[in-house]
């Protein structure tokens, strides 16, 4: 269990009831839990991931032909405004952040600049940020256009936007793979020629 090349800590934020916990649950177990309770404080999930550069991938990636075994830690936070003072203290040591909105509820998308601001204020400078519009299984109730999300992501220099469905397992694996590959690339290229990847030391928090 200890033998992995990298350990990445990803914080998952966004308004209440956009489906953050369901996304993590799908990522961890491969199942959808319709009866999800709301999160108080932070919930923790850990999963190992195999990133195999040899397998064909649609994502452009500079480290083809290399394989990595990763440990992904997801810090799944409570969405209510009131808890922000608590969750802020967990941003500091995160390597990546996923901001989630519910594409069937416009107000959750309108809070995104607020969440980006939080990350800029409390997170590390080189944090990789991704945006997800969850509940893509309910497209008939769509209130947020994908184009709008892309514009917003570009404006703030986010890595990517994906529309996901925890319910129908759309783009969940892709989300974490994309995040993982970007984090590997950044760390490996940074260290290239200096240290082998597995000596890169990350503390557990």
């Amino acid at each position: 269990d200890d033998a992995f090349d990298y350990l990445f800590k990803i914080i998952l934020i966004g308004d209440s009831n956009v489906g953050k916990t369901c996304v993590v649950h799908r990522f961890k177990t491969g199942h959808y839990n319709e009866k999800q309770q709301n999160t108080i404080g932070v919930d923790f999930t850990v999963r190992s991931m195999d990133i195999d550069g040899k397998k064909g991938s649609s994502i452009h990636w500079p480290l083809q032909l290399l394989s990595f075994l990763l440990q992904i830690q997801v810090w799944d936070t409570a969405g209510q405004e009131r808890f922000r003072t608590i969750t802020q203290s967990y941003y500091r040591s995160a390597h990546g952040a996923i901001i989630a909105y519910d594409l069937t509820r416009r107000s959750t998308f309108e809070s995104i600049p607020h969440w980006i601001h939080e990350i800029e204020k409390y997170g590390a400078a080189n944090l990789v940020i991704m945006l997800i519009g969850n509940k893509s299984d309910s497209l008939d109730k769509r209130q947020v256009l994908f184009e709008d999300a892309c514009t917003l992501a570009e404006k703030h220099g986010l890595l990517a936007v994906l529309e996901t469905s925890a319910k129908e397992a759309q783009n969940i694996e892709e989300l974490f793979t994309l995040m993982a590959k970007e984090l590997i690339a950044r760390n490996t290229l940074q260290l290239h020629g200096k240290n082998p990847p597995n000596s890169f030391c990350l503390d557990s928090r």
Binding site: N17, Q36, Q37
Partner: peptide, 15 residues
């Protein structure tokens, strides 16, 4: 917002 939130949370209480 918290009145709005109550509505969302009720169905997520002991589902």
């Amino acid at each position: 917002a918290s009145l709005e939130l109550i509505k969302l949370d009720i169905s997520r209480t002991f589902p």
